[in-house]
Amino acid sequence: MFYQTSIKTVCVAAVTFGLIAYAMLGGYFAREIVIEIALLAMLAIALDFLAGYGGMISLCHGAIYGVGAYIFGATTALSGTDPWLAALAAIAGTALFGWIVGAITANVGGIFFIMATLAFGQMAYVIVFESRALGGDDGLAGVGRFDLSAVGVNLNDSLQFALLCVAGMLLAYMVAATVLRSSFGRTLSGIHANEDRMQALGLSVRTHKANAFAISGAIAGAAGMLAAQHTQYISPEYLVWTLSGEALVVVILGGIGTLAGPVVGAALLVTLEHFIGGYTDRWHMFIGAILIVAVMAGRRGLFGEIEHRLSRRSETKTEAGIHA
């Protein structure tokens, strides 16, 4: 079950301040990295919410991110819809997409779930890829951005946009944390721990899983919506399966079922990507290798390991205190 421990708070705050500082002190390139980290962290938070606390390891979160980008991008670029309205549509649309995938797959466990989510993600990709109205393979340019000039924020400024993305990441974390601390979230953990018993106690497991998928989908969609605003251009690349893999790497590397871990994982992975990117453009190979090593090495992940060690130390301390 999820508890907002002080380790989590410290860790998320540290990453947030680090990103803000880097964006403010660094130049344009630094801000691009900050945006990349913030958006990947949002996507990974969405995935960890579902996979770490609900036991549903989805391989279509990359596609949901892309669906969010497309709903926002297509409505602003094609019909000139107000960006706020478009953002709302993107979040609602991805929640609906998540809910449907969740409802369809709720009866099947483990491996079937993985295969089915991979397939439905690919379905979204194929639909976008083949749709002429959405620009097909070429994608769409002319995607809008939020207008925050009323409060004195100019999002065409790279620093201010980067700060918006960091705010988005923080908000995503808080939404996920709040939901996980609620009865809804505890119940989700209950399903993860023992689905049959929850049903025997009177829970409609299927509805609950679908709803959880919808919440997770909305967070992933919000990240995609910000990504579309960032590049102001959308293409089927936003929905490609490798992004789901990248999100999974972030979650496993950071620590699945820790919520704060994905934030750390995203910062680490993007930094690593730019470091390795200086030597080779075969980044995907490293993603795959990291995923394999992270899965083979064990389950806790970086943040999970830190949390585990710290809590064990505090336990031994209290025990020592009692004996003394």
């Binding site: 893999g245 995923l291 394999i292």
Partner: peptide
């Protein structure tokens, strides 16, 4: 399964 998913990237 997750390991084989990683293998796709590598291969």
């Amino acid at each position: 399964v997750l390991v084989t998913f990683g293998l796709i990237f590598v291969i």
